[in-house]
Design a protein around this nucleic acid. Structure first.
Lengths: 229, 229
DNA sequence: TGTAAAAAATGATCATTATCAATATTTTAG
DNA sequence: CTAAAATATTGATAATGATCATTTTTTACA
């Protein structure tokens, strides 16, 4: 259970901030951030923003997981990314001055801070470290997505699932992976039924363990092998 | 046939530059650019850079098409993007201070200018317009790749081919699309044989016309319909 | 805490697309 | 201009993965 009134989260002491893109912010800029950010508790399955709407600022996840996804023409979700504590979410659309091209929804209860555009963008001009960090981050994500596309095009569903489970393992750290079969299928890019069958295979092969819906990877070496990497 | 000694290409009068990210460069910065850039003629199938190598600068395509691709674990290429005259290529890896994650190879003869890192990066600090342009461009491409991933996951090969042909149509402007079946298959993310069969279908349906290997889209409205968008 | 709704799991079937093999056409280089 | 190499095309077959229908389990909440 998370703190439901997270207003006391402080930027100056926030450990998340010290490890993310905002770590370059110093002195009075931190104070300004602290005074102007808001922080809210989100239940599971709440939207942060929706495809087509216009960005008002950037979200900084303190606790919890958020899925970033796009709806295909049939309305089916494709999950592009799963963001976790420490990640900044939704700042890309701010630069294009365009509507969001993806949506963001919590996968579990979250504490998430919000920094308005007007408070965030000026820091780009005054803070070369932040600027460079963002350029670096955008470039890194671009490279990740080239990988994603290549995997999608060239790997079997079994291989993609294996690789996705390794990614999810990193996102969920030591905790078991706790995500609905449908979301997982929409991340891997397959049908829910196919995903469930493959999970069963992995279980029978001793690579994973399933408790109710939570998945633990038992043999990540074998998983990497199965992923074809 | 292209000019094989393109040293006379001038940044100050370059129409390509005036329409791309470098349009914000003014006055003596243009002169500096002009003095420090180099410009070369490339034959078909020449590499600009290879996955794993380290970037020394950025390429500015004056004439010709360049494929940006990644090799999957089997060595098979996945084309991520096809760059054309006016496009800047290879600047992402410069920000990550990391090796290239993709390769770039000419699809036809090209004239391409090269700006060294040392001449390019400092402009980021002095030129907010360039900086914002690049943030915008990176964000836009990130959105494009989310689309790419979603199409890859949710659309049939037939739909993806239709969509790819529309993209290629824009890239090739009025000229017929001139790209090998293998490259096209590696862009769509399918087997060459499947691609050829589908092209045949499109031809029989009157949506495209094929001359030797060059493809002209006859009915782009129908093509859009077939693409499922 | 019981019940309805949602999510997960299983089974059967079908369609799409990959793969392998062979041939035809086009391009390249001597 | 011609032979060799590369590319494009066609055919046959197999495998992967989607879809639809149904049952079981889990979750939410009155």
């Amino acid at each position: 259970m998370l703190e439901k009134d997270p207003r006391n989260i402080s930027c100056s002491t926030c450990l998340r901030r010290k490890e993310n893109l905002l770590s370059g912010i110093m002195g009075e800029e931190v104070e300004h951030l602290e005074d102007h950010k808001t922080c809210n508790y989100y239940k599971k399955n709440q939207y942060l923003f929706v495809e087509g709407s216009f960005p008002r600022g950037v979200f900084c996840i303190n606790e919890g997981k958020v899925k970033i996804f796009k709806r295909g023409d049939g309305g089916k979700e494709q999950i592009i990314q799963i963001a976790k504590g420490g990640d900044l979410v939704g700042f890309r659309a701010m630069f294009t001055e365009d509507a969001y091209k993806v949506s963001a929804e919590t996968l579990e209860e979250c504490n998430i801070c919000f920094i308005r555009k007007e408070d965030f963008l000026p820091m780009l001009d005054t803070n070369p470290m932040l600027r460079n960090g963002i350029l670096k981050e955008l470039s890194r994500e671009l490279a990740d997505r080239a990988d994603f596309i290549t995997n999608m095009a060239q790997k079997s569903v079994r291989q993609r699932l294996a690789f996705s489970l390794l990614l999810l393992m990193e996102i969920y750290k030591d905790e078991p992976i706790n995500i609905s079969r449908e979301d997982m299928a929409n991340f891997v890019g397959t049908a829910t039924e196919t995903l469930i069958r493959l999970l069963k295979d992995f279980k029978e092969e001793g690579i994973i363990e399933i408790n109710i819906r939570k998945i633990s990877v038992l043999d990540s070496k074998k998983m990497l092998y199965v992923s074809g990497h």
